[in-house]
Write a protein that binds this DNA or RNA. Structure first.
Length: 301
DNA sequence: TGCCCCCTGCAG
DNA sequence: CTGCAGGGGGCA
């Protein structure tokens, strides 16, 4: 589900309300969702390990790397949360009404909590509750040692953050040079090259740069790499400013949807008109992922 | 470098 | 019923 802007929006929402709180109670509703280091919980024993390692800890930080949420806990432990396709992390304050003034946003947007998709529940010292929902059960919560975080996969191998100074045209140039034959879209989805781009923003940034997603990385001109770098940064920032894209499952930490879906130009718009040239937007499959592009603005060669 | 898989649920 | 879905790991 969420890519960099969505995960970042969730982290920004959670950070101010979670830091300093103690985890009073942990409920694991789906055992396979929780891991302890590399060991996936398969039954009561490992689930119990996870619970005992999280319960009673104090939350010291909430941050993001690529699409991974990192919740720092006391005693040199961290909780890694990956939302994969359909994960949600929703904080409900003690009054049960979310934190946004003027109504009952959490109930309106996501319905009753816990829901059928709720996998883990953390009850916090301020009386608030953090719900981890995940319809498709691909996401996970993993307890790890904080001091070894940078040595752990997948964190160890993540490439530069695209909204940091480390992401330069040179990064793109080197990656295209090293992997000449890979399709440029697949290169963008490789988290070891750039950390945090997913299917939506790969399609959108390639459209903005007027590059056909099936082009080989090695075929990009210098001007195209400059444009692609610019478009990646621009589309991620735009999405952040709109609170992320909610095509279906994504909601922020308050259970509220983002608005970026109204500003996407090609993603999931096959059959619609290209906003630049009026051609019909097409859909194909690249690397097993649905891929949307304008055949006129993004010619095959 | 391509499948296939993990799952549930929605639209057509 | 089939196809498809913001991810990514494993396997030939």
């Amino acid at each position: 589900m969420p890519e960099l802007p969505e995960v970042e929006t969730i982290v920004r929402g959670l950070e101010p309300v979670l830091v300093g709180q103690r985890v009073e109670e942990v409920k694991v509703l789906l055992a396979k969702t929780v891991w302890v280091d590399a060991v996936r919980a398969t039954g009561m024993v490992d689930t119990g390990n996870f619970i005992s390692l999280v319960k009673g800890k104090t939350i010291s930080s909430v941050s993001r790397r690529a699409k991974m949420i990192i919740v720092g806990l006391s005693d040199d432990t961290s909780l890694l949360v990956h939302l994969k396709m359909t994960g949600q992390l929703i904080y409900v304050a003690a009054d049960g009404q979310g934190r946004v003034a003027g109504g009952h946003p959490t109930q309106d947007m996501v319905g009753e909590l816990p829901s059928k998709s709720t996998r883990v529940i953390l009850r916090l010292s301020d009386g608030g509750v953090l719900y981890f929902n995940d319809q498709r059960q691909f996401g996970y919560m993993k307890i790890v040692t904080t001091s070894s975080l940078t040595e752990l996969e997948p964190l160890r191998s993540y490439g530069p953050e695209p909204l940091s100074d480390e992401f330069t045209v040179e990064v793109l140039r080197m990656a295209c040079q090293r992997r000449k034959k890979i399709k440029i879209k697949q290169l963008l989805l490789d988290q070891t090259v750039i950390a945090g781009i997913g299917n939506i923003y790969a399609d959108e940034s390639l459209f903005g740069a007027k590059i056909y997603p099936g082009r080989s990385a090695g075929s990009l001109t210098e001007q195209e790499m400059v444009a692609l770098h610019r478009e990646i940064v621009a589309v991620l920032k735009l999405s952040l400013s709109h609170g992320g894209t909610s095509s279906e499952h994504y909601v922020n930490a308050d259970g509220i949807k983002g608005n970026m879906q109204d500003y996407l130009l090609v993603y999931r718009r096959a059959g619609e008109v290209c906003p630049v040239c009026g051609s019909e937007i097409e859909r194909t499959v690249i690397g097993g992922r649905g891929t949307h592009y304008c055949p006129h603005c993004q010619p095959v060669s």
